[in-house]
Design a protein around this nucleic acid. Sequence first.
DNA 1: TCAAGTTGTCTATGTTAATAGACAACTTGA
DNA 2: TCAAGTTGTCTATTAACATAGACAACTTGA
Lengths: 242, 242
Amino acid sequence: MSMQDAASGVALWRQVADGIERGIADGRFAAGERLPGETEIAETYRVNRHTVRRALATLAERGLVRAERGSGTYVEAPRLAYPLRSRTRFSEIVGAGGREPRGQLIGASEEPATRELARQLGLKAGTPLVRIEALRLADRTPICIGTTWLAAERFPDAGRVYERARSTTKLLAHYGVRDYRRASTRVTAAIVDATDAIRLDLALGRPVLVVDSTDVDADGAPLLTTRARFAAERVEFLVENG
Amino acid sequence: MSMQDAASGVALWRQVADGIERGIADGRFAAGERLPGETEIAETYRVNRHTVRRALATLAERGLVRAERGSGTYVEAPRLAYPLRSRTRFSEIVGAGGREPRGQLIGASEEPATRELARQLGLKAGTPLVRIEALRLADRTPICIGTTWLAAERFPDAGRVYERARSTTKLLAHYGVRDYRRASTRVTAAIVDATDAIRLDLALGRPVLVVDSTDVDADGAPLLTTRARFAAERVEFLVENG
DNA sequence: TCAAGTTGTCTATGTTAATAGACAACTTGA
DNA sequence: TCAAGTTGTCTATTAACATAGACAACTTGA
């Protein structure tokens, strides 16, 4: 780093890469379009051309752009529209975008409910819960990692069931839950942590949307609560206003 | 950087600082509590004590923690609950949290509507718009920066009006709009850009929640559209599910 | 009072980030 | 065909990051 870097702890090449990525995300650089030349980018960011090259190299590695020698660097990507409503189903949302939804079990375990989890599920603290960690993809692109907690008594062996079903909707159906809906949703953002970064195929330091939600059955009784981390650069939440 | 840094473009001290901040944000370190010692933190992050010291120094500078020589380092902070519903008023939300809402005009200008803005406001592309850039605070803490567009014909001089009113609700009231509601809300996250970072008093590389919203009057006619950037570490959105 | 544990400060050294300049290899349009 | 503009690769130098070790200054509880 140097000069104009106000000791941010973020390398210049990374700032440039983020800037270009933002440009792609918000449409200033459309898919298929040619980016400005390396020299021009270097000028706009007031940075050395080598620094720009490093930024572009990381974007190319992540498949966001593609460099063509002698010609220029071209854009590759879009973003998944993800409505947050009462009826929220990952598979339906992804399917609606013409993409293939997939779920992949990372791990399942049993653990007692903390005070917070118990409150959300309407149980007593210490009640045994099943904790399921799952990765969700659209085609082959990782979208989010969700940690889900369910009461172990009502949903015994939920981990193994999810492994086969690969879908929350199907998991619940297996236990006779025909319908369910979103009771509460909290959204904030954070920086991806190291393990999530690997599974989401996300560079360290990228933002994630953190969604805490609780689903209830038709009678309003809590079924499960989830903390999901979405790769911010791949989704856009749509909030429905009633 | 070195060793365990997988060329992330984010300095180790910054990663440690983010980790601790996350710990504070999600309650692992409660306000007033003492953090683990510098040596212990260094061990958990597998990093030199000097690197931890740098991380703590930046957190201290931002007022998140306070170091006491010979004793330890202590936590200072909380987070604003921000409901996203049909009736969304910054002033009411902040006031409900027992804090003083403030608005501060950054700048106002006129510009023609892009296709996208025109669509959201139900106007023709090229229609003159007033663009207002404003910073919103709770007590003295910057919460978000919002860029708002309104039709120049219906809201002439809106910039100057906002400057005096310091509130969107009051601005609309000035033009005879008694009631309005949120018609659409889209949420995603990004990394703060350099200019926003300064105004939000946010370190470079921190995440922001980006909210695109459109407000309509009682008859459903679009009044204004806004793109707001919230300091993610200072707010938590609550999504109401109807 | 004192020992153990804490933050604060100093020196030293190797690694990575960023700049600078030059030129090769290639594409495109005049 | 050729000139202008592009990406790719090399060498060299300076600033920032990170590690290592030692010790001072201070707080706390036994």
